[in-house]
């Protein structure tokens, strides 16, 4: 998507344009992310939905500058972050420059709260460390702020927790601590990569609600990455659906759910088991499996599994095109188009 297509006056907080990432894999070059573009405004939440291998996690790590250089074969496009009235081009930064951004500008919450915390340091030290490093607080100030943060993420008895180690906490509490660390330096953009996948259902909802409340309160831009449409359904402002490294559909949340156009979005939506269906309802499974991203075949990556696919889909890759106000999709024969079923 280009500027003209996005008629927003504001300078977006985060703008990703035609981001392409290829990684070196054992079996060849992995086309992990291809031509991904989106923008994120202050105070907005973008949901990115995709199955494993859709490139969503690689994209998040590329935005954070966390992809190891030796594993990266190619990284193209542009990722610009608005910082204090300036616009920084993230892909051009050195590792050193990037490090100063992680924390105060960009922060990330990972899937597994156990591995995201250092098991041999107390929680207090882990929260206070980035504060001392980035904000130049002294130890006492940092600890006071850590206490404040733990209170904000809803951890009971925050004073006692500061002296505890990660293994003394349950999964949900640990993820709250991870969120507290991510928020410690007041980031402008928060990337949450499957933040609740490792958690139990009853805790999952608490953590999601917390993330969203904090995002609203601090007017952060949040990218919420998940494989579960249900997680973003009522929470994101916009949703981007990714398949095989590309965004295949992008729309405001309510619009996406009311009029999805890409066959993959619909198939994904229909294949999720619902509570509202009676027992033993046959599920709409998507035949086949996600494509491999090494030497991808020409054409639309979803074509082999797509009910609408025609000759053209196997030859050309459809570009992401605007079809309505902020609604984009990449499909030659979207749902509801005349040619389908001919």
């Amino acid at each position: 998507m280009t500027d003209s297509q996005h008629q927003t006056q504001q300078v977006p907080l985060l703008r990703v344009e035609e981001l392409t990432v290829r990684l070196r894999g054992e079996a060849g070059i992995v086309h992990a992310v291809s031509d991904v573009s989106f923008q994120l405004q202050r105070g907005q939440t973008l949901g990115i939905v995709g199955e494993s291998g859709s490139g969503k996690s690689v994209m998040a790590r590329a935005l954070m500058g966390l992809l190891p250089r030796r594993a990266t074969h190619l990284m193209e496009g542009s990722v610009s972050l608005a910082v204090d009235g300036r616009v920084l081009e993230l892909l051009k930064l050195s590792e050193r420059e990037f490090r100063t951004l992680r924390g105060p500008r960009l922060a990330m919450v990972f899937q597994d709260p156990m591995t995201a915390l250092n098991p041999v340091l107390t929680l207090g030290v882990q929260i206070a460390e980035p504060l001392q490093l980035h904000l130049g607080l002294n130890k006492a100030q940092a600890m006071a702020r850590a206490l404040e943060l733990l209170t904000q993420v809803g951890i009971p008895d925050p004073e006692g927790r500061l002296r505890q180690y990660p293994h003394q906490l349950s999964g949900g509490m640990r993820q709250r601590v991870v969120i507290a660390i991510a928020l410690a330096c007041d980031p402008q953009v928060l990337l949450a990569d499957e933040p609740t996948t490792a958690l139990d259902v009853t805790v999952q909802r608490q953590v999601l609600d917390l993330l969203l409340a904090l995002q609203r309160e601090r007017q952060m831009g949040m990218v919420l990455i998940t494989h579960d449409l249900g997680v973003v359904a009522n929470r994101a402002d916009h949703i981007a659906v990714m398949y095989a490294g590309r965004i295949v559909e992008y729309a405001p949340t309510s619009r996406l759910f009311s009029s999805m156009r890409h066959p993959y979005t619909e198939a994904l939506f229909k294949s999720v088991p619902r509570l509202s269906d009676p027992s033993h309802t046959r599920l709409h499974a998507i035949p086949g499996r996600p494509p491999q991203l090494i030497d991808p075949a020409p054409g639309c990556a979803f074509a082999p599994r797509c009910p609408n696919a025609q000759q053209r889909c196997r030859r050309e890759t459809p570009a992401l095109a605007q079809i309505g106000d902020q609604h984009l999709h990449a499909c030659f024969y979207p749902i509801g188009s005349k040619e389908v079923g001919a």
């Binding site: 291998g53 996690s57 790590r61 086949g288 494509p291 491999q292 082999p304």
Partner: peptide, 17 residues
């Protein structure tokens, strides 16, 4: 009965980071 795509039989999470 299904059309298939791609090869390199790997775990479905094959391309995870």
């Amino acid at each position: 009965r299904k059309t298939s795509y791609g090869s390199a039989g790997r775990a479905s999470r094959a391309l995870s980071f």
